[in-house]
């Protein structure tokens, strides 16, 4: 079945976006392979002359790089980081991520909309991370976003689909791919989001804090694929009350 994820005109077979933070560079290759990931996120930071290794040397060829703008506190800083990332010569994808709140790391939707408009105008494929709000999502669509990335729960919390009802509204009302980002802590939660109709899942901490990272990457791959198939199939109905036999009621024992 041809079921591509299309982001800004680019086609992907995988619906799992892998984060690269908080774990060894040496595990990236196995994580990408076992997750089946075709997109990996990165951050931009001050270069360090002491570290000889660069993350780009650990990412398998052919994987699309998705730099984020983490650290940005407003639209201007996000735009600045995005331009630096593009200058590093690894494509024009950017995950806009703007936080004013250091405790809960919640995204600032208004600044995110402003940054999205500027960056989309400069030819970036903009994937904004946002608090799931329908009005903000519509503004992001109008600003030129390629996808919408609502949070499931606070970043790094592994708490799962805390915003489930509001993500469902985005899935139902927004024509762009809805990629659930942040807070997904285990494969069952990724699967549930995919069953709801999410276009893809992004996870980092769930893998980085797992006991066996490559094995968890494989588990996420299967969960995302299972959820996608269930969504495409159409879920079975839920009865309001009572039961409905799965077996033919021949009744021969009583006749």
């Amino acid at each position: 079945m041809d079921d591509k994820l299309i982001i800004g005109g680019h086609e992907f077979n995988s619906r799992f976006i892998l984060g690269s933070g908080k774990y060894s560079l040496n595990l990236i290759e196995a994580a990408v392979r076992d997750a089946g990931a075709e997109i990996i996120t990165l951050a931009v930071r001050r270069a360090n002359t002491k570290e000889k290794e660069n993350i780009l040397d650990f990412i398998p060829e052919g994987v699309t790089l998705l730099p984020n703008t983490s650290g940005a506190r407003n639209a201007e800083e996000a735009v600045r980081i995005a331009r630096l990332a593009r200058e590093l010569g690894c494509g024009n994808f950017v995950k806009v991520e703007i936080m004013r709140d250091a405790k809960y790391l919640l995204p600032d939707n208004a600044e995110t909309i402003r940054a999205t408009e500027i960056l989309a105008g400069e030819g970036f494929v903009v994937m904004p991370y946002m608090y799931p709000d329908l009005n903000a999502a519509r503004d992001l669509v109008n600003a030129g976003a390629a996808t919408i990335m609502p949070l499931a729960a606070p970043i790094g919390s592994n708490k799962g689909l805390a915003t489930k009802e509001f993500i469902q509204i985005l899935i139902d009302e927004i024509d762009l791919p809805i990629i659930v980002d942040a807070g997904i802590g285990k494969p069952s939660q990724a699967c549930e989001a995919m069953e709801m109709g999410a276009a893809a899942i992004m996870a980092n901490t769930a893998l980085a804090t797992a006991g066996n990272l490559p094995l968890m990457a494989a588990a996420f791959r299967q969960a995302v694929e299972a959820g996608r198939k269930a969504y495409l199939s159409g879920l079975g109905r839920v009865l309001a009350r009572g039961s409905s036999a799965s077996d033919p009621l021949t009744g021969f024992l009583r006749d």
């Binding site: 984060g19 690269s20 933070g21 908080k22 990165l42 951050a43 270069a47 993350i55 730099p67 984020n68």
Partner: peptide
């Protein structure tokens, strides 16, 4: 002057 590069991130 800022000298920046990619690092791991989510």
């Amino acid at each position: 002057v800022e000298v920046v590069s990619f690092v791991g991130g989510g």
